[in-house]
Amino acid sequence: MAKIFTKTGTVSGHVVLWIPKFIYLIIAFLSVIFLLRILVVTQIDSAEAEARILINRLIYSPNDISYLDADTNRNYPGIIDYKKFISLENFPNELDTKTISYGQYTNLIAAKLILKNSESNKEDVAFYNKENYEFWEPRILSTVKGGTGSVKSFAEQKYVLIKEQNKLSSGLLKIQVIVRTG
């Protein structure tokens, strides 16, 4: 150690003394880059907006589950066409392939629709993007390992009228949407 204070050891002594300075410089440099990465927003969480838009689309679009008067071409958003709803029980259904088609980007959003007839207590279930819904559904529980964080779930229910042939009956439509976030 004493050698660094001799003439021959002067350069190496300087190098040794310079090492901590260099380490501090690297730490300061990395800290600024880290802060920059933290402060600059590059992630946007629009999961809730997307879920609400899908729910509104299912209810208000004339081509999904609401009743469309063929004569006047008028859409009735509060009235569920039971025939259309029942036809959605298969997978893939018309929502997946035609009216809300994400094409190859199917791993973004999925939904489960439960239509309960308040008069007969009959429940019918339909899915949008059933395959992914069933895959993601366990992940909305906080107890599932690797679950929370990768998907978000949003639910909404609306009192509706159910049109079955010429009969109108009251009912409740529950929609649960799962949006993939990760």
Partner: peptide, 15 residues
């Protein structure tokens, strides 16, 4: 993202 959601919203309008 905003425009993609806007297109989705347009599709949900009945008229």
């Amino acid at each position: 993202r905003d425009n993609a959601m806007l297109v989705n919203t347009l599709y949900s309008s009945p008229g």
